[in-house]
Amino acid sequence: MLAFLIRRTVLAIFTIFSISIFSFMIIQLPAGDYVDSYILRQIEEGFGGVQRSSAEGLLERKEALRKLYGLDRPMYIQYFKWIGRVVQGRFGQALEYRLPIWDVIKDRLFLTIILAAATIVFTWALAIPIGIYTAVKQRSIADYSFTFVGFLGLATPDFLLALILMYMAFVYFNFSVGGLFSPEFQSVGWSLARAWDLFVHLWIPALILGTSGTAGLIRVMRANLLDELRKPYVVTARAKGLAEWRLIMKYPVRVALNPLVSTIGYLLPYLISGSIIVSVVLSLPTLGPVLLQSLFTQDLFLASSIILLLGVMTVVGTLLSDILLVIIDPRIRIS
């Protein structure tokens, strides 16, 4: 068991390292860097009408700016300087915001985690009972209806669902879905009232984000349980004279749940990916909109910090679900 955990942890660290390299490299791919796009926008916006000479002056400043931000060094040096600071918790400046990156993203990181956690809770609370019911009542009307709704849930992309929901809320209730706080709580400090406000706002994004996960989990739970229901140990339990629901909950459901714990790990990457787009559509104050913005402005350090944090978050979440799996499944615990 210890070996298993060590193996997992080593793999997790290795994964995080790979993500950091990958995310850093990928941002280097664009033809220009931040300075290019900054200058370009300066020319387009502020200096649109001005003579060419001042535009050229800007271009001359370019090299100075690049030096200032360290963009003129070889890539691997830039990477090591960056990762060295990141390991110490210093992410550097968000170029666009002119603020430390950490200040830009810390609240958003927290809300991203909250949203992911809320979605997982929501997904499980809904999917497990439905999965059990549809497996036990296989081929009933309820089974078929849930299968169909589940298919719809799987097929509708999250962000479309968000769009449709927003549209309906806007047109029929003249109410704007979006954000995670009411206006009065937008930018005040944390309080109980604010936490409650967050809770109230959280369920719509969690619902949107959770639909495909819920639909998928229902199918997995149903399939797992159907497999387990056929196993001899269920027949044994039945032959012992136990009441049907009691034995189902004690034996096959328990066994069918085990592998699902590891699906939390698989679910996380999808959830985080999904939350980016949904957050953009619903303008949620999570990391998604900032990431998109930083990609548009080619803010290398901000974008890779966010990608790295999202990756770390996912890897840690997966590791936690692995540990949970070890705790609840005696087969893994022993071998």
Binding site: P232, Y233, T236, K250, Y251, R254, I328, R331
Partner: peptide, 8 residues
């Protein structure tokens, strides 16, 4: 093997 529950 399979007549007993694997997790009890």
């Amino acid at each position: 093997m399979t007549s007993f529950s694997p997790v009890h």
